[in-house]
Every structure is written in C-alpha cells, then in structure tokens.
Write a protein that binds this DNA or RNA. Sequence first.
DNA 1: TCTTTATTAGTACGAGTGTACTCACAAAGT
DNA 2: ACTTTGTGAGTACACTCGTACTAATAAAGA
Lengths: 195, 195
Amino acid sequence: MPRRIDAEARTAEIAEASLRVLERDGLAGLSVRGVAAEAGIAAASLRRSFATQHALREYCLQLIEDRVTARISALELTGRALVDGLLLQLLPLDKERRLELVAQVQLGVLSLTDNRLRPPAIRLSEGVDRACHAAVQILIEAGLFNEQRDPGYEAQRLRALLDGIAMRGLWSGELPASSHMPGLLTRHLDSLANP
Amino acid sequence: MPRRIDAEARTAEIAEASLRVLERDGLAGLSVRGVAAEAGIAAASLRRSFATQHALREYCLQLIEDRVTARISALELTGRALVDGLLLQLLPLDKERRLELVAQVQLGVLSLTDNRLRPPAIRLSEGVDRACHAAVQILIEAGLFNEQRDPGYEAQRLRALLDGIAMRGLWSGELPASSHMPGLLTRHLDSLANP
DNA sequence: TCTTTATTAGTACGAGTGTACTCACAAAGT
DNA sequence: ACTTTGTGAGTACACTCGTACTAATAAAGA
C-alpha cells in the first residue's frame, strides 16, 4: 500500500547532506530548512525522518562513526601497513575524510554546551581510543614496538598526537599544505621500534 | 568634557564576559543581547565598544592571545621548569585556562566557515607554534635535548601533542579527571633528552 | 481502477537574531 | 552653572530559526 519503503536510505541521504552543510556553512547552517535544501527535499519530509533537530545532529555523529569504522574494516592490510592505513583514516587527507572531521569537530564543540549530544560524541572519541590501542597492539605483534616502552602510555601519546595532527590539518586551510601530516605520524611510529 | 575615558577597560570587560558566555552557552549564546546581559550593561552600550558582532568575536580571539602571552611572560623560571610552565599555560588545567581554551576552540571552529575570522585565529595558532619552538630551544640550551634529535621535527611533534592533550582535556568533562594530562606532556619532554 | 501512503509546497506561530534608532539621565570638564 | 558626552532603557525592522499544521500531488499496492 505504501508509496516507498526507503526509510534508512532517506535518513542516510539527509545525514550526508548534513555533513556537507556542516563543512560548507558550519554549525549555523545546520538548520532544518538548510539541510532540506541541500538534500533536495522539502522541510516537511525531513521532519518525517528526523522529528527534531537534535535527532539530526545526533545521527550525524553516528553516521561519521559508522563511515570511519566501515573504511577501517575494509582495509586488507597487516602489520605496519595496517597501522598506517588505520590511523590515516582519521586524518583529513582527502575531501571525504576532511568532510567527516570538520563535521565531527563542529558537533563535538557543540556537545561542550549541549549535554544531550555528549553521549554520541563520547562514543566517537572512545572509538578513536580503541583504534590507537589496537595500533600499538599490532605493532607489538609485528615486532615493531620496542619492549622497553610502555604500551599504555604510547597508546595515549599516539592518540594525542593523532588528534593534534588532525587539528593542524583542519586549521591550515586545504589539503595540499597538509601533505606532510602523514610524515609526522609515520616518523613517530618509526621511533616506537627503536630505543 | 566627556563623562569617562574608560574605553579600553570597558571593551576588556565585555570581551571577558564574552569568554564566559562562550564557555557556558557556546557559540549560539554569543549574541549581542546575551553578552550585554552577562557584562551587566545595555546592548546599546556594547555596540558603542563593538560596532558589529564580528568585531566582538575578533577581539575575543585577540584577548585570549593577550592573556596567554601575558601569563607566559610573567613566568620567572628557567630551563626545564620554564618549558613545563610555558606549555602548561596552554592546557585546560584550571578554570581560567579552560575558559580560554573553550572559547578559542569555539571561535576557531567558527573561523572554518567565517573567513573574516581566520586571520586572528591563525595569529593565535602561530603563537602556539612559536611557544613550541621556543620550548625546544630552551631544552637545547639547558642540555636536555639529545643532539641526535631533529629540533624542527620535535617542535612540530610537540605542537601536535600539545594540541591533542588539550583537546582530550576539553572533551573529557571537567578538570579533575584531566590531572594526568601534565604527566603525558612531561613524560614526553623527558624522553627528548635521552636517545 | 481504487485506495493507501509518502512527499510536497505552503503557511503560521512564537522566539531569537543583528542592526539601527530615539530619548532621558548622569557625570565630568570648563 | 553649563555644556558635552557616555550610558541606559526602550523600540523598531527585517530576518531566520524550530516546530507545527494544512491541502494538494504523485506513486505504489490491492
């Protein structure tokens, strides 16, 4: 009887349009009317998928997490190459990853003053934490991690370094100048094997 | 003839009220009426100091930079203690520093989509860069920097690490849990002397 | 074909926004 | 005492916002 059964596809489209709006216009542009226009649908249709603006913002964070984890899961690598690939998924090295990171930071900053947004923001952050700990574990198993080092500390330091490099890449304009970001990261990963 | 010649004092009060609003209510709260209420003055009086909302936001970034540099200049330390004190001024270790960092991130994120805000944001970022390079230089002069290391690379890595630790401190709620932030930093600084 | 449903466009409301005024008051310098 | 000036409170305009409706349209299943 119904007209269509899209549901999920529709919400995904809307959320992806939201990410584009977040990168182009920032938080101020993430309005019901603005996102609907970007998605090419009517505002009333958007409110059928997301009854409230908060639900939309929440789903955006969820979508970012899903997309990143999907990309990481798709990596068919091992050892050091896997560690590189894994961590590079969290840096704004191309348009897609920059889009996600900008949106993530915008919503993350909003979560500082909107407590309802903190749970999904924390979930996302914990995911990155797990990735860093996993990276250290992979290095250990590959014999690329000096045994004198403290795995827990190195995972934390790696997390901070990763965030810092990502931020640096964000502020410093576009993608070209940020091509030396991976260098900083890989050089750090190299150093974990030595002393 | 005039009534008072405050000028600077007034603008400083307003900007400090703005920082408080930014931490409490976020970017959405940084409105003319909202800041005026926080500062305890009339909206019309605020617009005498800041003709436009953009000027207010711009001055906030400037004020943050001034406050941080003032605190750093006031440090009467040398060697490693100076490096520690210098870098700790950029972490959200107390209410004042957290206030500044939250405001800085809020406006920094806004500068991603408001190009007029980029110059002051970039200035602030470059100041942090200089601090990191200075920190490395101080370590070298104090003999706490292994000569096999690359000063330029270590300055960049320090910068990223500092930003990452600061971000971590921001997201993870309040100040208590972030007391292990300095540990991460000092441990890294220690390691610069060795291998 | 008929019925059911999703989508659309449009409108409406109350609130908040930046910006721009006016007018009365209070304080300081001459 | 008088004049100049900053301040305060208030008002206004045009806009956007989230949210909530309506009525009309289009498409799919029965």
